[in-house]
Design a protein around this nucleic acid. Structure first.
Length: 813
RNA sequence: GCGACCGUGGCGGAACUGGUAGACGCGCAGGACUUAGGAUCCUGUGGGGCAACCCGUGGGGGUUCGAGUCCCUCCGGUCGCACCA
């Protein structure tokens, strides 16, 4: 191989050697009893799909680089790994490859991926490996379910739910994307009325929202997405008495715009609203029933489309506006959703786009009650939704709409006609799945005792070996009631796999505990996760659920932390030929291929140098070559400096020292900020400086040796095999992995002279070298002495001088 | 439609709180060493001009001594939400 011809660097010879040493010595083993400060470095555990490419490996390399630096900096690093091993692909693969059991398929994939991770030199504390499909893990997933159940956070309810016809299971709201299944974006979900298990995440809506404030090291975007998903809105519930209904019953609506109450010209009920049947008059009954039936049948995709023209029918019933006693018609229309607010609205067409469209379509009156700052419009062409001054609103006329909102709410509350209310877009988390390959829900259905939790000491409820739906496996579901001993039936749904992943990061603290899901003391020691890295596709799903879990466990007194992840980072994806790299797409580069050709170290650096870590990047072989060249150059500089031809004299050792010191600062900061691409660039600059040093006849003295060691140490997190090998060949006794991170020497890094930019009227006219700390007077003097400045001023004095010390002087004529 | 982020050489990308635009790498051109080189090393490389100089960070405008960076507006792209009252 050509790499070996001009340098002794042959990655294939040294990489397996060091991987073995690291493993044998347990380099990345985390000590629970260490006195060092802890650092919990975590990458989202993957689904073992059997498809590991260098694309997926990129974020594992990021985690590894950080872990290796933090260790050298004196932290006790927890860098664990595990597998999100329950889930549908295993079942699908099992079906496709006739007869193979999901467990077999999963275990095989795990073994393969694990080997490839090791081959890339990525170090984990494998003693803490967690696999969510193993009984010693899902036992505690079940346990946690029961904890939620005890705390009133798990309940069963009949509800219209999302059903994926391909996966043949229900889905959580978070798993439905534009009315389609998150796993098959071409498959529309269906609505089914089913009795299902839910977790009461809505109880935590306020805290999940408010605590986002604490997550200042999360990407702004993710926080915003969660904010929108939770969707808290403030407004009022208002009672509209229904005309002629026995008992003086009223219609409760929710609005965020109480200030527009006088502009309500009709009411709208969702087709599913329970009052529809009762208030509809005989004359309209047939039409209303027909409309409701049609709406129920329509898919969410159709119903929620904003493009579709609004539809609806009148009920023949009327309501009274509580503030002015006006009698207004009640309609049924499917643009109002039963699942939000109260399932009924007051329609204010003048100030709501949807109501406006509906009113236009059906010729309903439109009354302006908020005058825009630009003045009232004679004829409303569109709804005005902004703030303004209240008009046509009786006693409230003339009030600013923002203040008016408060006044109207107060007036309603005083008369018992309404009250302040807060609503959320967030719904409870539907957690049951009609699948085999997941954690069983540890509940028994007893005819006498109803829902009975399986006693905790009887956990786990084991999955039967035989692969078929649990509901079709009587050996599984036939049981006796733990309470009364009568024959009973086990719950046959399994849990959403997002439950498994909502607590795995806690299990790493005490992975072998056989008495509890996690040891609180150890979890409190390691938590929260200091750095969490993973794909942005989990911005809501996994990250919201995990936050919810941690808050519940906190409330249960099991955990001090109330947020799981201090700093979150979303890495970009690796593409090749314009597509996301994957084995199935046929554009994947496997770790095997990469290690075989260029070696793990070159691959690791390339993954980091290829582009900003948060951006999607394109994998090219040419780019990889540049990195290989860099590593060979480093090898020669460190171990074969005699091979570098001296071309001239006059090397300045001070420059070498300074560059090395500056690089320590730069690279350390860049690693900390996960800006690996610029860290590599800084290391390349140092290597270039060192190369020039030798070419200029510079000595290989103590300063040189110091620079060499700095280079090797700083490069180590990126290219650990090669650096460890160089370290050994340099004659160092201890392992590089166990050595310390270079200290930043500010004095050595300081530049004695700086380039002072001389501008005339903001345009660069000259660059002068001056000592650091040059005074304004002195700077002005040398600047005015410059030929090019003199030409511009021709003896006159500048009318203004802007001086930025050690940077620039700007002379304005 | 609403919201967020982003537009920098032939390419990937640098540029801290406004202060030398283009670090580092790829590619390309010329050269050195070579039987040879797709190895290695050197030099050059935003555009225009022989030149001092002029023009340049999506377009236009503004603030400022000074704008890739701040403000307004338009164009283009990516992502999120999408009848949530």
């Amino acid at each position: 191989m050509s790499a070996s011809r001009h340098s002794g660097y042959v990655p294939q010879d040294i990489e397996p050697k060091w991987q073995k040493v690291w493993t044998d010595r347990g380099v990345m083993r985390a000590d629970d009893n260490s006195s060092k400060p802890k650092f919990y470095d975590l990458v989202m555990y993957p689904y073992p799909s059997g498809d590991l490419t260098v694309g997926h490996a990129r974020n594992y390399v990021m985690g590894d680089v950080l872990a290796r630096m933090k260790r050298m900096q004196g932290f006790e690093v927890l860098h664990p790994f595990g597998w999100d091993a329950f889930g549908l692909p295993a079942e699908n693969a099992a079906m496709k490859r006739g007869g193979i059991h999901p467990e077999t398929w999963t275990i095989e994939n795990i073994a393969k991926a694990k080997r490839e991770l090791k081959m890339l030199g990525i170090l984990y504390d494998w003693d803490r490996e967690v696999t969510s499909c193993m009984p010693d893990y899902y036992r505690w997933t079940e346990w946690l379910f029961l904890l939620f159940y005890e705390r009133g956070l798990a309940y069963r309810a009949m509800a219209p739910v999302n059903w994926c016809p391909v996966d043949k299971t229900v889905l959580a709201n978070e798993q439905v994307i534009n009315g389609r299944c998150w796993r098959h974006l071409d498959v529309e979900v269906e609505k089914r009325d089913l009795e299902q298990w839910f977790f009461k995440i809505t109880d935590y809506a306020d805290r999940l929202l408010d605590d986002l404030e604490l997550l200042d090291k999360w990407p702004h975007k993710v926080r915003l997405m969660q904010t929108n998903w939770i969707g808290r809105s403030q407004g009022a519930e208002v009672e509209f008495p229904i005309v002629g209904l026995a008992g003086g019953e009223s219609l409760r609506i929710y609005t965020t715009r109480p200030d527009t109450l006088f502009g309500a010209t009709f009411m709208v009920l969702a087709p599913e609203h329970p009052l529809v049947e009762r208030i509809t008059t005989d004359k309209y009954r047939a039409k209303v029933r027909e409309y409701v039936a049609k709406a129920r049948k329509a898919s969410d995709i159709d119903r929620l489309s904003t493009e579709r023209e609004k539809s609806g029918v009148p009920t023949g019933a009327f309501a009274l506006n509580p503030v002015n006693g006006e009698k207004i018609p009640i309609w049924v229309a499917d643009y109002v959703l039963m699942t939000y607010g109260t399932g009924a609205i007051m329609a204010v067409p003048a100030h709501d786009e949807r109501d406006f469209e509906f009113a236009e379509r059906f010729g309903l009156p439109i009354r302006e009650v908020i005058a825009p700052p630009t003045g009232s419009q004679r004829e409303l062409r569109a709804a005005y939704v902004g703030p303004g001054v209240m008009v046509n609103s009786g006693e409230f006329d003339g009030l600013d709409s923002v203040a008016g909102t408060e006044r109207v709410i107060a007036a309603l509350e005083a008369k018992g006609q309404g009250k302040r209310a807060v609503k959320y877009r967030l719904r409870d988390w539907l957690i049951s799945r009609q699948r085999y390959w997941g954690s069983p829900i540890p509940i028994v259905h007893c005819e006498v005792d109803g829902l009975v939790p399986v006693p905790m000491e009887q956990l786990p409820v084991l999955l039967p070996k035989e692969y078929k739906p649990l509901s079709e496996n009587p050996d599984f579901w036939r049981t006796t009631c733990p309470k009364c001993g009568r024959e009973a039936r086990r719950e046959t749904d399994t849990m959403d796999t997002f439950i498994d992943s909502s607590w795995y990061f806690l299990r790493y603290a005490s992975p072998h505990d056989t008495t509890q899901p996690f040891d609180s003391e150890l979890a409190n020691h390691w938590m929260p996760v200091d750095q969490y890295t993973g794909g942005v596709e989990h911005a809501i799903l996994h990250l919201l659920y995990s936050r919810f879990f941690v808050k519940v466990l906190h409330d249960a007194g099991m955990l001090e932390a109330s947020e799981p992840f201090v700093r979150l980072f979303n890495q970009g994806m690796v593409k090749r030929f314009g597509q996301v790299m994957s084995k199935s797409a046929g554009n994947g580069v496997s770790p095997d291929e990469l290690v075989d050709k260029q070696g793990a170290d070159a691959g690791r650096i390339y993954e980091m140098f290829i582009g900003p870590p948060e951006e999607d990047v394109e994998w090219t072989d040419a780019g990889l070559n540049g990195v290989v060249r860099f590593l060979q150059r480093v090898w020669r500089l460190v171990l074969e400096p005699d091979s570098i031809v001296v071309e001239g004299g006059g090397a300045d050792v001070v420059i070498l020292n300074r560059k090395a010191a500056q690089t320590v600062k730069k690279v350390t900061e860049h690693y900390d900020e996960l800006r690996f691409n610029t860290a590599v660039a800084a290391l390349m600059e140092l290597a270039n400086t060192m190369q020039s040093h030798l070419q200029n006849g510079g000595a290989r003295d103590a300063d040189w040796n110091s620079a060499v060691r700095i280079l090797v140490k700083l490069l180590n997190p990126l290219a650990p095999h090669m650096c460890e090998e160089m370290w050994e060949r340099l004659g160092e006794r201890s392992m590089l992995a166990d050595s310390t991170w270079p200290e930043y020497d500010a004095a050595a890094a300081a530049e004695p002279e700086v380039t002072l930019v001389v501008q005339v009227a903001g345009k660069v006219r000259d660059r002068l070298t001056v000592p650091v700390g040059t005074s304004e007077e002195k700077a002005l003097e040398v600047a005015m002495a410059s030929d090019r400045v003199r030409a511009a001023f021709d003896g006159r004095k500048p009318s203004k001088v802007v001086y930025v010390p050690d940077r620039l002087i700007n002379l304005v004529p």
